[in-house]
């Protein structure tokens, strides 16, 4: 058994024995080098109450090369791609050290959720949302946690019955009134949401972006 496999086995055992951290590791297929990490969303953040799944691939030269991690669960966070789940975190790249373990890396991901770093974003749109109107960003992040990570949600009410439209607007972190306004001009609802999200039509920005500009974008 090579050193890499021995170390991975130890790390798995370490997570299994540690019940306090709430971090779990599971196998995805038969390979011990393709794993699934599970951790709870940190308390006091929009991610609280959610359960986040992370895809873990142990490279051949582990532990001298960093593990490859990306979110399986969709997360609304400036440093996580909302589409692919790719993570922007220094220790997963050039700041990796061989003394870091799967557990400590998953804990780092947990703390990344606590402290977003919008100046070094993975998802530019989400980062813009975060910097312009933090309150609206947190609502959206809470909503995503509720929908994708099984979080409790802000209002504690299931929104599943209220139709797809409301979902889409809340998912994009937009206001329903704005979407309705442009939809009334005869544009498709999906398109309106997409353009408004791209233009970051939120909070203070609403006054800075003229309606003409939005329509122009919609007509492109």
């Amino acid at each position: 058994m090579d050193a890499r496999l021995r170390r991975v086995n130890k790390e798995i055992a370490d997570c299994k024995n540690d019940k306090a951290s709430g971090i779990k590791i599971e196998l995805i297929d038969e390979s011990p080098f393709h794993l699934k990490g599970i951790f709870p969303g940190p308390e006091g953040t929009p991610y609280a109450g959610g359960t986040f799944l992370v895809d873990i691939i142990i490279p051949e030269s582990y532990p001298f090369q960093p593990v490859k991690m990306k979110f399986i669960t969709k997360v609304y966070h400036p440093n996580v791609s909302s589409a692919s789940g790719a993570i922007c975190l220094d220790i997963l790249k050039d700041a990796w050290s061989p003394v870091l373990t799967l557990k400590s890396t998953l804990i780092s991901l947990q703390s990344l959720l606590c402290s977003p770093e919008p100046n070094d974003p993975q998802d530019a749109e989400v980062a813009k949302h975060f910097t312009t109107s933090k309150g609206s960003f947190e609502d959206t992040a809470t909503y995503w946690t509720q929908i994708y990570a099984g979080g409790p949600g802000k209002k504690g009410v299931s929104t599943a019955s209220s139709g797809d439209g409301k979902d889409e607007v809340a998912m994009a972190g937009l206001e329903k009134a704005h979407v309705d306004q442009f939809e009334a001009l005869g544009f498709q609802r999906g398109k309106v949401i997409d353009v408004l999200r791209r233009l970051n039509y939120r909070g203070k920005n609403v006054t800075q972006i003229s309606e003409d500009r939005v329509v122009e974008e919609l007509l492109k």
């Binding site: 791609s81 909302s82 589409a83 530019a124 398109k191 997409d194 791209r198 492109k220």
Partner: peptide
């Protein structure tokens, strides 16, 4: 996905 304006 980010910056994808193809749908427009």
């Amino acid at each position: 996905h980010d910056g994808d304006n193809n749908e427009i």
